[in-house]
Design a protein around this nucleic acid. Structure first.
Lengths: 237, 237
DNA sequence: AATAATACAATCATCAGATCATTGGAGGAC
DNA sequence: GTCCTCCAATGATCTGATGATTGTATTATT
């Protein structure tokens, strides 16, 4: 009997690593022992260990690099964005739900950002804004990255890791859609304008204004996206 | 050297399954071929296949059941929010961040609920509220379940699957804390009062009022929790 | 005939031992 | 000092096996 819970070996390994980080035995940047050694150490097979790593990878706890090893990830700035989950079998309605969620959360983080951002963080955001402005005229290539970076810095300066994590996930899910919007030079110009307004409110430490501008910005993105979705139906694989 | 991207075998399998769902070859509830057969079919080893399944599992795309097989699950846009909880939930500050996130999101869902809830949904919510009122005097046992049910019905009636999924995750992470608050009879009574106010606003279809009451409710929970955290320090492992 | 107990087959969970591919660094050629 | 080659460490993948769990067909019992 006793089917209460037979913990899988894989899950045990995940817990082991997680606890190691929690109690400080493992720190961000640390390299774990090789698969060979760790599997012997924990008494599980390499296959099981790799499944656990796969899970930890997806949770963003570790990063695996062939030829180098497996590392505890630091909570670094938006360094590794692409690696996360793609997964887009979304219909239009779910895209709209994603955007609605983003509007709600990001409007609030913009507001919190006004209250909590350090001067250094504001400077960093300014630098990104500057790069975006210069970028928008010539190089649309990296504009989308800067756009996302702007939003993520804002969210980070809001000092709430839960909201940040949620926005990171939403960002990944909406990444392709955002790119499409920004491919249009006019869309990029508009985005710049909104970003400047948000930044201005941030400098003035005006939460309500920042919230309003962010909402206007995302509403604009939403409208553009709706237009695009109405005219193009294909969902590229 | 064309190191542009060497797609890993694991990732190929993930794409294969995902595309199968997108183009309708695989439908929710379908059982995939056994690991043995599928690995031969796709030309990868079973270990690789299992790593891919691990990832798909975490993405909420498939469910693996020992002795039965691997099944395609019904996939929702909120499915990806699952991995929010890696190592969070360890110190007090992260609990407060969780509550802050909950305040922001749930206040907005209460508002949306006023705009979108069907009469039938409002009736269901009323029934839960009634049960809570009766319950609070005698049976504190199931009161917490009803409390959570109330909030979840509200979120569901807001008709946004992404926000719903986020709140489900936050609920799981905060569950123990919520229980503690409601153990106090006075806390339960207060909760009832707030719930009635929120429900009243819902009946009147007054989004702003509902939002305000929800915020007041969660602020109260937050305050109670802060008090508790100040007096008890233990962090159970 | 209906029901309970058993045996069996399918399937996932895990293990053990290999080979291939990639990375970083050591050491030599210039 | 700089560049190149080679090699050891490590992850990526493969192969083949055994244990654990589930559903079902079979049998025994009433």
């Amino acid at each position: 009997m006793g089917q209460l819970r037979r913990v899988s070996a894989c899950e045990s390994v995940v817990e082991y690593i997680k606890n190691g980080i929690i109690d400080g035995r493992l720190k961000p940047g640390d390299r774990l022992p090789s698969e060979q050694r760790l599997s012997e150490l924990l008494g599980v097979s390499r296959g099981t260990l790799r499944e656990a790593f796969k899970k930890l990878q997806l949770m963003g706890v570790v990063a695996v690099k062939q030829g180098e090893g497996t590392f505890v990830t630091k909570v670094s700035p938006g360094a590794m964005m692409r690696s996360l989950s793609p997964m887009l079998l979304m219909d239009h309605s779910s895209i709209l739900e994603l955007i609605e969620a983003r509007k709600i959360i990001e409007a609030e983080t913009a507001s919190l950002c006004c209250l909590r951002a350090s001067p250094a963080e504001i400077e960093e955001i300014e630098a990104i804004l500057k790069a975006m402005t210069e970028c928008s005229n010539l190089d649309l290539e990296h504009f989308d990255e800067l756009d996302i970076e702007f939003h993520m810095r804002l969210a980070k300066a809001a000092k709430n890791r839960v909201l940040l994590r949620i926005l990171e996930t939403l960002r990944d899910l909406l990444f392709e859609q955002i790119r499409e919007v920004l491919k249009d030079p006019e869309g990029a110009t508009r985005a710049c304008k909104y970003h400047r307004q948000i930044y201005s409110a941030l400098v003035d430490r005006d939460p309500k204004l920042a919230k309003r501008h962010m909402l206007a910005h995302l509403k604009n993105v939403e409208d553009t996206l709706v237009q695009m979705l109405l005219h193009e139906k294909p969902i590229e694989s």
